[in-house]
Write a protein that binds this DNA or RNA. Sequence first.
DNA 1: AGACAAATTGACAACGTTGTCACGGCTATG
DNA 2: CATAGCCGTGACAACGTTGTCAATTTGTCT
Lengths: 342, 342
Amino acid sequence: MTKAPPRRAKIQDVAEAAGVAIKTVSRVLNNEPNVREETRQRVLAIVKKLNYHPSLSARSLAGRRSFLIGLIYENPSANYIVDVQHGAMARCREDRFQLLMHQVTGKGEEMERDVLGLVDQTHLDGLIVTAPLSESVDLMRALDRRALPFVRVAPNDAPHPTPYVDMDDAGAAREMTEYLIGLGHRRIGFIVGHPDHFASGQRLVGYQAALAAHGIEFQERYVRQGYFIFESGMEAARELLTQADPPTAIFASNDDMAAGVLMAAHELGFSVPERLSVAGFDDTYIAKTVWPRLTTVHQPTYDLAYTATNLLLQMLQTGAAPQSMRLGYRLVCRASTAVVHK
Amino acid sequence: MTKAPPRRAKIQDVAEAAGVAIKTVSRVLNNEPNVREETRQRVLAIVKKLNYHPSLSARSLAGRRSFLIGLIYENPSANYIVDVQHGAMARCREDRFQLLMHQVTGKGEEMERDVLGLVDQTHLDGLIVTAPLSESVDLMRALDRRALPFVRVAPNDAPHPTPYVDMDDAGAAREMTEYLIGLGHRRIGFIVGHPDHFASGQRLVGYQAALAAHGIEFQERYVRQGYFIFESGMEAARELLTQADPPTAIFASNDDMAAGVLMAAHELGFSVPERLSVAGFDDTYIAKTVWPRLTTVHQPTYDLAYTATNLLLQMLQTGAAPQSMRLGYRLVCRASTAVVHK
DNA sequence: AGACAAATTGACAACGTTGTCACGGCTATG
DNA sequence: CATAGCCGTGACAACGTTGTCAATTTGTCT
């Protein structure tokens, strides 16, 4: 019954079985040139037969790289970060890299220590930095000092030679605002995202640009500061809706806050979308599960992460920094917005 | 300006600076006994001064363990899995283990190949298996064959010597059902969870037990099969609500499905909780963001994962399988349930 | 003081790969 | 027909730790 667990095959076993030197096996496994096709096939057959898998540790030690990539994030909504994780994971699998997720604790120096601790302990080959961590100049400098390749899934606020992947936040926000204007709305509330995020400012810029383009006066009283979380959206909406001449539409800088707006609207008796239109941003899972379903900007979260990981792997292989990329968005019109009420 | 990136300190550098052998440094770093306190302090000082961090690869290679733990999951809701991840991550950090998340693709044999591929390639020290993967007897056997320690975050349906961490699904479901009965409901709909999950059956058992205890006849027509996702809850609720004598309350086996029930109720004009009470299960983020907020069972997701990881690390250190554990739940009564309408 | 046990330390060989370099055989070139 | 160069291959030394075991120091008991 109890069979001793079979010893793991090592490169030597494969080499002996194939009648070649271990170095040749190594060459085959790493797709190095200068191996005769016949030899390559013979080795591959044995590898399969023995179910041989090279030891990550040995490879790392000898090859001076860990095949480990880090993904650091601060405190995003679960739906968002899971998409990011899966995008990065998918790309890593293609090249047999492993992904180490790391939720960063603290701010400022404490945050830096946390990240550098991870980097030092695990000897990562590269790092994927999500917003708003990507906005810390100090962190980027520290990573440079360690000569650690990294890419950012975030808009490039502070110019840095490192590549990044982003989307046109300002353009998307402008388009959404224009959509609301097109529905006849003139008093449009806006809830700003977390001040630590560069994207927050960009989305505000887009909102303002749309108003200006349509000759609508920008009014401070229709703008509130939020923090990308549900409660902050609810709170902001309460303030916006309880003033005289309340907005007929509210555009929140992400879906979580937009869901908060819905909650406040329900509490205050504003029916959506009859008396109040609500728009979100991101198109995360929550947008489809609240009632009414949210009109929002679809952000290609999965693809952003996949692409960022792709750039990072390119960097590791070529040693050179590839071009940054900007991915597209698209408006998703659902049930939370409608033509303005009389 | 451009300073050559300083070579990483290695154990030899520490040893020389401290005037001891590398083995002594190794002993200090691994908290091994038989090092004089004075020596220990001297070494630690140098370690700090040089910002020395042992190489994971070298440690793994020499020590024959990877300090890597896998966490595999299938396709759970984002809110749930993020809690699991963070619970496991927190415990890993305490012992300087790293966590490798892995979303499993496929079912049956394909799923097994996927998991074993991960295990073989990374040479994991241990694995955390979440439901419903934990229900595959074949997978568990395969892990045994590889002599890989693992724990399950799931109820123990198929007895296996490996420890698990779970909660009392049947008891919780029974309590929630009794709460609804206490509100005067007699026609209580129930949406079963995904059939692959053992917990689904347990929750149904709890529902049935509550009905029986209060002399309420169990009726098939008030029960529908769901799949733990939003759409399936919505679909099931549509069916339940459009029959003659529809239920006055619906208990969904998780929050995502309960949110779907709310959506269906809105569509069909059933106001919640006035005409229909709705209860969920899990107490994930979604329960607090839908309107009305969901009455649900709080499941200690984070703690389940933390505890499971703790058991796994104990296993790795002692070599023996520790006791399985059962954690507590609690009813969270919010706005989606009310006394039955006339 | 001497003898023995325990605590502390070090030398050296693993661990399983990849990098470097050398070697023989073959092909193309003059 | 010699010669240079490339291709395919292998021998062997890293890589930076931990495990083993022997050597040395320290402590304890007569």
